[in-house]
Nucleic acid binder design. Sequence first.
DNA 1: GCGGAATGTTATAGACCATTACAATTCCCC
DNA 2: GGGGAATTGTAATGGTCTATAACATTCCGC
Lengths: 160, 160
Amino acid sequence: MLRVPSPYRPRVAAPIARVAGLDYGVLDELLGYQLRRAQVAMFLAFHAATRGEAITPPRFTALVLVGANPGIGQSTLGQVLGIARSGAMMMTDWMEERGLAERRRRPGDGRSWGVHLTARGEKLLALLKRRVAAEDRKRAAVLNSRERRELLRLLGKLAG
Amino acid sequence: MLRVPSPYRPRVAAPIARVAGLDYGVLDELLGYQLRRAQVAMFLAFHAATRGEAITPPRFTALVLVGANPGIGQSTLGQVLGIARSGAMMMTDWMEERGLAERRRRPGDGRSWGVHLTARGEKLLALLKRRVAAEDRKRAAVLNSRERRELLRLLGKLAG
DNA sequence: GCGGAATGTTATAGACCATTACAATTCCCC
DNA sequence: GGGGAATTGTAATGGTCTATAACATTCCGC
């Protein structure tokens, strides 16, 4: 059903190792550094969960957003992904080339296109959601549910 | 004293916006997504703190590590940065080209070089440490000190 | 209607990083 | 102590992601 995706190499291949006997200096007290470390660990889990699908976190995010907001514009997509409009366009191209989404003219605004998932996109998204959510929870199993909620809350405050 | 660094554009220019009225679906419950959002926010703060110095987070990390562990090898550097050996080499080249660090032969092992900060590297590092730590605390001011400690603890658990 | 804003698009360029292959050196085990 | 395996650093190459800039089309307010 789903075509074999093009080969894909994650941008980050290795976790940020904790080397014994090394002095980390100021890094241990910097939120930015610890955030990055945790994020790389979660990214590798994500990559494991989506193995074989050539899915990156931004691509997954885009699929979820289009799925939850049919007809979303590409500018909005870019804002939520934190990338420039041109990047949002390439992302949409990527989805369209693989038959996961399509552009449809928006009635009432001749400039913009709305992005919609195809049946195939819906199917892939459902699969990915299951896998990613499962892996996310598995990786986060070192936290109990109170800690997990607390972490989400603190991250939300930080991101503003 | 310090030369004007080469122009540098951050890889991420925009925060991950929170768009009102949009359905974020499963994203709000994924640690990976919230982690990424917070990390981008902190990265932009980092970028603001190091404005004009062409410093990236990996470069800052490398400087801190070399400063705290004089004579560290490039392989170890790569491990801690989570990049391949070839990348650690380019990082060392970068520091050396700017007169921030230098390679010195290691007695007892003819294969490896130890990386050491120069006086100029020490000076820049001291400046950056002050600025980055200040910005990190400023950005994290939305958290009280208990929350900040708790966040660091939870991130540490997650990163393993 | 007209100037400015917004949307999508194309082209271009740059930064970063992995992979692969290679040379020199050291380690380890027999 | 000798030889194959592992380690360290290096060089060359390629791919992916993203920004910037410039442009055409369309919308909007006056």
